[in-house]
């Protein structure tokens, strides 16, 4: 049965492994190159190999050098799970139904439940392993030129590329594709539904993630800039001198004039005026220390969803509708 799983799905397995290998080489190459660049350009005062200490010049320059890599990188958290779902999940049952080969596979001596269990276990395991490999590579690569200014928590795109998130996303997409295959009994519509489903799920979880924990709250005076680069901001509001939240401080307190162009002079003057009158600025956020808590929460949600979708696929398969 493992032979059959390999024989039927070796194209996907090989392409994914090849992609991860090429990506690994690319990341390795760029990391080596970046290290050399840092060694050449970092201010002598910085500790060896660090791109950022005090000023951002080298890091910004590095960022510009890798702009192309980054824009590619930015799409990966969404595109990779979608591809996994479309090419690993959707054909698993969709193609069997489409070609009528389910009537061949499911009338052999081997019970259908075992056929399905092996396929789901082997392919699901491979998908999780692939996601973890991606996560490991990205985690090793990023610090090279984001050292000190890294944002694996605040930046949701990056957050979904490290830790256990990629594995959870890939597994979810795989299960979604498999379930879609039993729904449409055709590969192409199942692929389309899977891609759409992954996009919707990602948007939903981004919105939902603010509620993974009670946000921390800090009250600022004198500035509205929250100096915690890797935090996730949830919301901000003004507090009047009595400590009550006010959505919009009345213009009677401090008059506000609209800024022209890119200048923020008027806004800054207005904020200074409010702080002077005893107003304060409250920021609610998730601190980066919650990284693993959020990782596991997201992974748990996705794994549960994957289990539910997998269960649906199993149920629809075993219900025997020829």
């Amino acid at each position: 049965m493992i032979w059959l799983t390999w024989r039927q799905h070796r194209a996907q397995i090989l392409v994914t492994a090849g992609f991860l290998a090429v990506l690994g080489l690319l990341l390795l190459g760029s990391a080596v190159e970046a290290k050399l660049y840092v060694a050449e350009h970092a201010p002598p005062s910085c500790p060896a190999g660090t791109a950022y200490c005090g000023d951002l010049d080298v890091a910004v320059a590095l960022g510009e050098r890798y702009d192309a890599v980054y824009s590619l990188f930015g799409w990966m958290p969404l595109v990779l799970p979608a591809l996994i779902g479309a090419f690993w999940g959707a054909p698993l049952l969709g193609r069997e139904y489409e070609r009528g080969t389910h009537r061949l596979a499911w009338t052999q001596a081997m019970p259908v439940r075992r056929w399905l269990a092996v396929k789901l276990a082997v392919l699901g395991g491979a998908v999780v392993a692939g996601g973890l490999a991606l996560s490991a590579m990205v985690s090793l690569w990023r610090p090279v030129f984001r050292d000190g200014i890294d944002s694996t928590f605040g930046n949701i795109g990056v957050f979904n590329m490290v830790g256990v998130a990629p594995a959870a996303w890939w597994l979810f997409a795989f299960a979604l594709g498999t379930a879609a295959g039993t729904l449409f009994r055709r590969t192409l519509p199942a692929m389309a539904l899977t891609v759409a489903g992954v996009a919707v799920a990602m948007f939903t979880l981004v919105t939902l993630s603010d509620h993974y924990a009670e946000p921390a709250r800090t009250v600022l005076t004198g500035t509205v800039v929250f100096d915690e680069p890797d935090a996730r901001l949830v919301g901000a509001t003004w507090l009047d001198p009595a400590g009550r939240e006010v959505a919009d401080p009345p213009s009677s307190v401090c008059p506000r004039r609209v800024d022209a162009g890119r200048s923020s002079r008027n806004a800054e003057a207005w904020q200074a005026c409010l702080f002077g009158k005893g107003y304060r600025y409250a920021v609610s956020y998730h601190p980066p220390s919650r990284f693993w808590r959020f990782q596991w929460t997201e992974a748990a949600i996705l794994t549960l969803a994957a289990a539910a979708l997998g269960g649906l696929a199993v149920r629809r398969t075993l219900r025997r509708r020829a």
Partner: peptide, 11 residues
């Protein structure tokens, strides 16, 4: 029991 379905599906 062995079965050959209509259209004789094969891979």
């Amino acid at each position: 029991v062995a079965f050959v379905a209509q259209d004789k599906p094969l891979y």
